[in-house]
Design a protein around this nucleic acid. Structure first.
Lengths: 203, 203
DNA sequence: GCGCCTTGTAATCACTGTTTACATAACGCG
DNA sequence: CGCGTTATGTAAACAGTGATTACAAGGCGC
């Protein structure tokens, strides 16, 4: 999808980025399992060995793609939850928390295979190893806001972990046969209220 | 580890089970990525093609192993949470709920790679496709017990999903760098209390 | 004993990840 | 401008893989 300025026919210009994008697209098409360095190179009109100028091995490519996943997630957060407002509006704080959760769950649902890569064996854990704020950081901001509105007590690490767990669990479990009837989008908000209830009871 | 009666040297006796056990052991050793049908066959003293008499392809073997995972999990539940008591003791109900969560989290932590297989792309979802009661079922029992003790309201599906999400999230996120200092075992109980708090507030 | 089905073997195919020795473009610098 | 160095690519090769095929031999019921 995303074309990265192939400034030259020979010397391909930007093979590294092309490989990453190819892999990202494969993941979005649910074809990650079938990914092969050779096929990727072939389809990019390049010899197999060329890929190894940019990645020491296949896993390095996958790991790099996983990092891109965390970058995308961070971008999704930025677009969804603007944090420039300093207003102490309770309804706003709740909405922002729900929006954060929704962004997380949506990303997991929309990029299932990339998601598994991000938290899989190459799993930077969810810190993302990125220079951008992680999910944990964003969550901290949201909870602090809720605390500022006196909806919950000032969040402690275990509370932050609790909220994260609940949201992460939803992300993983969505689409599971046991919940076939439940529309996730509508229920995320409801689940967020439950999380807030739990934290509110901890005064 | 687990030897399955090789009742014969020739005709190997029980190749299918041997392959499954080999794969289970590989998963517990964190070597699932390196699993190869050929190597497995070789190490079991059998030709590569023999394996394909028992599984149509490699994925079928992995899927079968994933099912074994759900079986093990069910067994863990049975050993940890005896449900023959009909006593309406509130403390007992809480303990059982915590024990269920602990069994879930422990299993995920002890069999990391098998866990990912179970919820991965071959992911029977968590229904397990088994004839034994699933996590969702066990969770339902626990919540009903809590309701019987008037600790929470009679659980609705979204509450069951909420509890499951929180527990599943913990399982996945444990060992993540962001929580490096937190000892999971000690905090599971605490998190369970938070879940109960949330459901208790829904009267 | 005689078929038949199950389970194994041996050989083979296309394909993969990865390394190597070799080419060639691009770029800095005198 | 020319020249050497570095970044990037090619071609060929190696070992190992998933999977299929034709064939053999053990075990079973009749």
């Amino acid at each position: 999808m995303i074309q990265t300025k192939p400034r030259d026919a020979l010397r391909h210009g930007n093979l590294k980025e092309a490989l990453i994008n190819y892999t990202l697209n494969a993941a979005d098409d649910g074809m990650l399992a079938d990914l092969s360095v050779r096929k990727a190179a072939r389809e990019l009109g390049v010899s197999p060995g060329a890929a190894y100028r940019h990645f020491p091995d296949k896993n390095a490519l996958l790991q790099c793609v996983a990092e891109r996943g965390f970058d995308s997630l961070a971008t999704a957060f930025e677009h969804t939850v603007p944090f420039d407002s300093t207003a102490k509006d309770a309804a706003d704080a709740r909405k922002r928390f729900a929006a954060l959760a929704m962004a997380y769950v949506s990303f997991a649902g929309a990029h299932r295979e990339l998601w598994r890569l991000m938290f899989g064996p190459f799993g930077l854990g969810p810190s993302g190893a990125s220079d951008r704020p992680s999910t944990y950081d964003w969550l901290g901001k949201c909870l602090s806001e809720l605390a500022n509105c006196d909806i919950i007590a000032p969040p402690r690490p275990e509370h932050q972990f609790f909220a994260w767990s609940a949201i992460h669990g939803m992300s993983d479990l969505q689409g599971s046969p046991a919940l076939r009837a439940q529309p996730i989008a509508a229920s995320v908000e409801r689940q967020c209220e439950l999380i807030i209830c739990a934290l509110a009871a901890q005064s």
